[in-house]
């Protein structure tokens, strides 16, 4: 009984449907970008801490539920147009897979680094989304479009961050996904297939988001592009993520 309560509680932070709706409701209600960013870092760490410190044995039914949650949110991402909501759904889809890693006897430090690696691009996307809201009043796809022509530097960073978020090589999430597939393919091939399907849906959703924002004619109104310092900061974080990805690949694969 206690174990079930712990799992349900952890299911709020390491999203398991329907508890996953809590995170998305919280994200929806917070308007301050930095607060959102902090939440994106802290939320999965809380979930992992609950699971790890309670030393609860994760029951077998969590695996299909975690996969279903991840697949459900990946599928729902396809029709989203609001960038923050998209980011929240991607976070839900990504973090629910941490259950799989937790079930595979992954070390604590590695589990935390998985969570942080997954969250890092999402935090960057939160900040970029705030940048869009600041410039256009809303962060919506197909509302203004043509960002590649209107604010090319911003668009370049946005595209790279989205690419990093949807588990593209050489970013850490790619290696985490690869490791999960390697770990599951022999024992539970069906789970590995679902993982790959979820990965495919992320790519589809990512491409839709990118297309909805950057493609189109330039805006007639002059919009301020990203300044050099901000670009340098974003580039540094993205470079650090690539280095972390390569390092992680040496550790986990």
């Amino acid at each position: 009984m206690t174990e079930s309560i712990i799992i349900l509680l952890a299911g709020i932070f390491l999203p398991l449907f329907p508890m996953s709706m809590v995170f998305n409701a919280v994200i929806e209600s917070i308007k301050h970008a930095w607060l959102r960013a902090v939440l994106f870092v802290v939320w999965p760490l809380c979930g992992l801490s609950i699971v790890l410190y309670s030393k609860v044995v994760i029951p077998a039914w969590v695996l299909p539920l975690a996969l279903t949650t991840s697949a459900l949110y990946a599928l729902r991402m396809l029709s989203l147009r609001e960038v923050n909501q998209w980011n929240g759904f991607l976070a839900t889809s990504l973090w629910s897979l941490l259950w799989l890693a937790a079930m595979q006897d992954t070390s604590e430090i590695l589990l935390y680094s998985y969570a942080l690696s997954m969250s890092a691009p999402l935090v960057l996307l939160v900040l970029l989304s705030a940048g869009l809201e600041q410039r256009f009043g809303a962060a919506y796809t197909e509302l203004y479009s043509g960002l590649a022509r209107t604010i090319p530097r911003f668009a370049g960073v946005l595209v790279t961050v989205v690419v990093a978020a949807i588990a593209t090589p050489l970013f850490p999430t790619f290696f985490i996904m690869l490791d999960m597939v390697v770990e599951t393919i022999s024992a539970t091939p069906f789970a590995a297939m679902v993982l790959l399907f979820i990965w495919l849906l992320w790519s589809w959703a990512g491409a839709r988001l990118i297309q909805g924002l950057i493609v189109g004619r330039a805006s007639d109104i002059k919009i301020v592009d990203m300044n050099f310092t901000t670009i340098s900061l974003f580039s540094l974080v993205l470079m650090a993520l690539i280095v972390a990805g390569i390092y992680l690949s040496g550790v986990i694969l």
């Binding site: 690869l178 597939v181 393919i185 495919l200 790519s203 589809w204 491409a207 297309q211």
Partner: peptide, 23 residues
């Protein structure tokens, strides 16, 4: 996008093959 999604579909069997060979 059509190209991307077809290529991503093609990535799946290669990843499975790699995972099976490694295991």
């Amino acid at each position: 996008f059509w190209t991307l999604i077809t290529y991503r579909i093609g990535d799946i069997p290669l990843i499975i093959a790699a995972a099976l060979l490694y295991n």
